[in-house]
Nucleic acid binder design. Structure first.
Length: 280
DNA sequence: GGTACTGAGAGAAGAGTAAC
DNA sequence: GTTACTCTTCTCTCAGTACC
């Protein structure tokens, strides 16, 4: 037996000026998350142990199935992808000092830990050659289960950053490498994360199945992304929605939606997500 | 009073550095 | 280039606090 809330994307809700929003500022994009109700009935399910919860109103003991554990993994994955998008938006603007690198293996690499170790060695060599660089690393399994690594690199000095393909290839030494400039995009984080976020609302069944399977390759306690020390972390600011509107000069959001959370078709809460171009 | 939010703690894993 | 060590960061979970 299982318990599921239904979430649904609906037309963007109108938010009163006094409602509190959590706001994330970055050079190009301002993100706001507004939760309609702080109190609702979702918390009547209390987690007990790794694989079960209890309905606090009925005392019913509910075990998670493997599929539900996968859903939990997907939820963590989605949260990590959201964090990653904000970190990218805060640190990368599509400047000439920034590069997007992909590192692959010529043979199959199915071990997450070995791939992590290989990147660690690669970065120590890279850092020796380019001491002013910082990175965000994303380890991703291919459909075959073989790992490859995406790396966003920036030169802190903001100088035009250039790495020869042969140099990069010899530093990596495990297979093919690709190096690209970042495409200009005001919301580069969303552009970038769209490639990895496995919990999008795609209707393509085969794609969803493939992506669901890929999440299975991640071990428990996996780190979807890692950053070097010099990468800034976004800190949310809580403000009223009226203050937010003043902050963005009353412009319309460039992207917005509202998600409702329903229990047996009764809406118990809604969360509105908005993005504004940062014109400040 | 009930419940969501937030922060803290534990454990695991990664980053950075120094020594060899 | 490798290894060992320390510090930091991330995931996961829970309990106290603030809010409705």
């Amino acid at each position: 037996m299982s318990k599921e809330f239904q979430t649904k994307k609906v037309p963007t809700a109108v938010i009163p000026d006094d409602k509190l929003s959590k706001v994330y500022l970055s050079p190009n994009i301002i993100e706001a998350v507004t939760v309609d109700k702080r109190s609702c009935n979702i918390r009547k399910f209390k987690r007990v142990g790794k694989n079960a919860c209890v309905n606090m109103s009925t005392g019913e003991y509910i075990e998670f199935s493997k599929n539900e554990n996968l859903q939990s993994k997907q939820a963590h994955f989605k949260k990590a992808a959201n964090d990653l998008r904000r970190i990218i938006n805060l640190n990368f603007i599509g400047d000439c000092s920034e590069k997007f690198i992909t590192l692959t293996y010529c043979n199959r690499m199915e071990d997450y830990n070995n791939a992590s170790e290989d990147f660690k060695k690669f970065w120590s060599l890279f850092k020796y050659r380019y001491p002013n660089c910082e990175y965000i690393r994303i380890l991703e399994p291919q459909e075959s289960g073989s790992w490859h690594i995406h790396v966003l690199i920036k030169d802190k000095t903001k100088k035009n950053f250039y790495v020869k393909h042969e140099v990069l290839s010899s530093l990596w030494g495990h297979g093919k490498v690709w190096i690209k400039n970042l495409p200009f995009s005001e919301n580069f984080g969303a552009y970038f994360c769209a490639q990895f976020n496995s919990t999008d609302n795609s209707n393509e069944e085969s794609k969803a199945i493939q992506k669901g399977k890929r999440i299975d390759y991640y071990p428990s306690n996996f780190k979807f992304y890692t950053c070097s020390k010099g990468i800034e972390k976004p800190k949310p600011i809580v403000m009223s929605h009226g203050e937010l509107k003043r902050l963005v000069n009353y412009q319309e959001p460039c992207y917005a939606y509202t998600n409702t959370i329903a229990d047996n078709d009764v809406v118990v809460n809604s969360i509105t997500f908005e993005q504004y171009l940062n014109a400040v």
